[in-house]
């Protein structure tokens, strides 16, 4: 990763070893049983595993339950506006490609109010991890229908049941030009969650991960069957994606080998809703990364003045 945009003055203790303590921020205030706890643990474990420097790591979020995430990390965090995490993260990474950038969004954040940014961030392909924590509902504001709420599911805004079929974020992301990493995992399978995060972090490009996430208060029943019955889940396994963690092989017996290079197969798998599919659906590292194609070397102040004077000559009388 390029560090060129940074001054050398910041001291770095290279012998520092980071443990979980170094990443733990405030005590998480999500409801007991909320899937976000498990996501937080997996993220912290990833940072330990990759030994990311807390000061060089930024978690950017929007607004919603899941967007409280940065407060519970001891890295830099940016808890901004509803739906707008991706533009902020894009700005951070454009300016500072040396930083490790993670984005945490909810379903309302990502595919409703911020849907335009989701489409375009996918297209920019900036090197970052984008987690969409999908509990199929607006939780923080107490149970309003979201775009991923199953059709017919009752909420406070649509008590007769959601009028529309649920949006399929994976299928949609796979349809966006320049998509480079699209994965789905579930917070109740920690080993798979972690393996997916690791693959996403190691991928160079925009890594979109939809995390199926239980809300024990408002949508407890939505993933209940899948949690209880591993038969409903199909693991997409591949050395270039996520391999089935050994500990799970006995439980999740539906395993399919899916080569993440195969976009059309990925789209077919995403569109077929007969099963919940977990794994890396698509990955292509050959797509150029926006912050790299736009990268330019810094110029000293004196240098800029010299060039600016040349430019102004064009307007000289």
């Amino acid at each position: 990763m390029s560090q060129s945009c940074c001054s050398l003055l910041t001291p770095v203790d290279e012998d520092r070893e980071f443990s979980l303590d170094d990443y733990e921020g405030a005590r998480a205030r999500w409801c007991p049983g909320c899937g976000d706890h498990s996501v937080l643990t997996a993220a912290q474990k990833l940072l330990v595993d990759e030994q990311l420097k807390p000061e060089e790591t930024v978690f950017v979020s929007g607004i919603g339950c899941s967007s409280r995430f940065p407060h519970y990390m001891k890295t830099y965090g940016f808890h901004g506006l509803h739906g707008r995490a991706l533009p902020v993260a894009t700005g951070v990474k454009l300016n500072r490609p040396d930083l490790n950038v993670f984005v945490v969004m909810g379903d309302g954040d990502c595919v409703s109010i911020g849907a335009g940014h989701w489409v375009h961030a996918t297209r920019y392909n900036v090197d970052m991890v984008a987690l969409m924590l999908d509990n199929n509902i607006y939780g923080l504001t107490k149970m309003q229908t979201s775009p991923t709420t199953p059709e017919g599911y009752a909420s406070n805004t649509q008590p007769q049941g959601s009028w529309l079929p649920a949006l399929n974020p994976i299928e949609a992301t796979l349809g966006i030009t320049n998509a480079s990493f699209v994965a789905q995992t579930a917070e109740w399978i920690p080993a798979h969650l972690f393996a997916t995060f690791q693959a996403a972090y190691r991928h160079r490009g925009f890594a979109f991960v939809r995390v199926l996430q239980r809300c024990p208060v408002f949508t407890e029943d939505i993933y209940l069957d899948a949690v209880r019955n591993p038969e409903m889940i199909e693991i997409l396994s591949h050395p270039d994606g996520v391999e089935m963690p050994e500990s799970l092989a006995q439980i999740y017996t539906n395993q399919v080998r899916h080569d993440p290079k195969n976009l059309s197969a990925a789209r077919d798998l995403a569109a077929d809703d007969s099963r919940l599919r977990l794994g890396v659906l698509y990955r292509d590292e050959s797509n150029p990364r926006y912050e790299e194609t736009r990268h330019l070397p810094l110029h000293s102040a004196e240098d800029k003045i010299r060039i600016l004077n040349e430019e102004l000559d064009k307007y000289a009388v």
Partner: peptide, 18 residues
Amino acid sequence: REDFHSALVATSEELRGL
């Protein structure tokens, strides 16, 4: 070269600020 030069510029600039 540009990466190294950029680091030089950034360092020099931050130091001047200090």
